[in-house]
C-alpha cells in the first residue's frame, strides 16, 4: 500500500504546486494522476521517488506499507521509476541493463544470469541479452526498461507518461504488458498520464491535479 497524506510540494520562494493530496494505492493496483501540463505531475513523482531537485520542499507524508519515505534517500526507498523514454544505460548491453538493479541476495553468476534470462523471455526479448540497447525497436526498449525496473524488486512503481511516445498499436500492447506485470509483482503503481485511455485501462483510483 502506497499512501500520500496531505502531500504538498513547493519551491523555495513560491506557493504550493497543487492542493494537498490524499491517495491510497493498494498492492497490485495502478492509480492514475492526470492534470494539465506544468501542474507538477513529474515533480510529484520526484517527491515520492526521492529525486526532488534542490530547492523543493515537501509537506505532509508519503507512506509505503505504513513506513514514511520522506527521510530516506532515493535508493533506500526502493521505488521503481519508468520514464517516457526508456533511458537504458547506453554503455551496457540489454542483459547488463536488466542485471543492473538485481538485488544482491540473488547470488552466483549463473543464478543472476538465469533471472535476467527469464525476465528477457517474459518480455519477448529472449535472444537479445547481448544486444546494444540502441539497436532495439521502441517497443522492445519499453519492455526492457520495465523489466529492468521490476527486477530490482521495487516496493512500488512510478510511471511517468511511459506510453505517450509509442504509436497507437504499440501503446495498447505495452500498457497491457506493464499493468499485467505490476499486478503479478503485487506492488502499488502510480501512473502519470494525459491519455484518458490509459486511465481507463489502469482501473485503479484516479486523481486530477489542479493548481493550488
Amino acid at each position: 500500500m502506497l499512501e500520500l497524506r496531505n502531500l504538498q510540494i513547493r519551491h523555495k520562494n513560491s506557493d504550493s504546486l497543487f492542493a494537498p493530496l490524499n491517495l491510497s494505492i493498494p498492492a497490485g493496483q495502478v492509480a492514475v494522476v492526470m492534470g494539465p501540463s506544468g501542474v507538477g505531475k513529474s515533480t510529484l513523482l520526484d517527491a515520492i521517488g526521492g529525486h526532488l531537485a534542490a530547492g523543493f520542499q515537501t509537506k505532509g507524508d508519503v507512506l509505503l506499507q505504513g513506513r514514511s519515505l520522506l527521510p530516506l534517500t532515493a535508493q533506500a526507498r526502493r521505488i521503481g521509476l519508468i520514464f517516457q523514454d526508456p533511458v537504458l544505460f547506453p554503455h551496457l548491453n540489454v542483459g547488463q541493463n536488466l542485471a543492473f538493479g538485481l538485488p544482491r541476495d540473488i547470488k552466483g553468476r549463473s543464478k543472476r544470469r538465469a533471472t535476467v534470462h527469464k525476465a528477457l523471455s517474459d518480455a519477448g526479448l529472449a535472444d537479445m541479452g547481448d544486444r546494444d540497447p540502441a539497436t532495439l525497436s521502441g517497443g522492445q526498449m519499453a519492455r526492457a526498461a520495465l523489466m529492468r525496473g521490476l527486477l530490482a524488486r521495487p516496493q512500488a512503481l512510478l510511471l511517468d507518461e511511459p506510453f505517450s511516445k509509442l504509436d497507437t498499436a504499440l501503446r495498447a500492447e505495452i500498457r497491457e504488458f506493464t499493468f499485467a506485470h505490476i499486478r503479478q509483482a503485487g506492488i502499488p503503481g502510480l501512473l502519470v498520464t494525459h491519455d484518458p485511455q490509459d486511465a481507463e485501462a489502469a482501473g485503479g483510483p484516479m486523481l486530477t491535479l489542479s493548481p493550488a
Binding site: T73, Q75, R78, F83, V87, F100
Partner: peptide, 13 residues
C-alpha cells in the same frame, strides 16, 4: 539526469 535517476531507482547508491 534521468540516467542517474533510473540508476538510483534501481537501488544504486
Amino acid at each position: 539526469p534521468r540516467l542517474i535517476r533510473a540508476a538510483a531507482a534501481l537501488g544504486a547508491g
